[in-house]
Amino acid sequence: MNLVELVAAGLLVCGLFFYLAGTVGLLRFPDALSRLHALTKADNLGLMFVCLAAALLAGSLRAALLLLLVWLLALFAATVSAHLIAQVSLRSQGQALEPGDEGGAGGPADGESGK
């Protein structure tokens, strides 16, 4: 294992840590807004580390720029969906999320995975 691979592995472990933190937050936090906070913040950071690791391993500027694009798209998709869900949960104070609006979480998730 050379130095680049070692650094990439380290970045991957960092990314996985943030995904783990985000997931624990999703499961443990009491209300919709703080869960959203955990998910969007931690997972986007996790994705950044994973993209960095992949860019290092790919070893070309083109691939690195593509991965940057991927990360930006996921970042904005997560922002919009989090914003939509937060709006709904604020309006329905205390009630569970309306099922129809969770389609918003499904939609942007397609965006994140469609790459």
């Binding site: 099922p99 609006d101 389609g103 499904g106 998730a109 397609d110 995975s113 469609g114």
Partner: peptide, 25 residues
């Protein structure tokens, strides 16, 4: 993998959720 995540899970899931919401309504 891409098709399954985007279409099989994402789009299908969104369609089922919105149908669920319409049934509730």
């Amino acid at each position: 993998a891409m098709a399954e995540a985007a279409i099989g899970a994402g789009v299908t899931g969104a369609l089922i959720l919105v149908a669920y919401w319409r049934l509730k309504r």
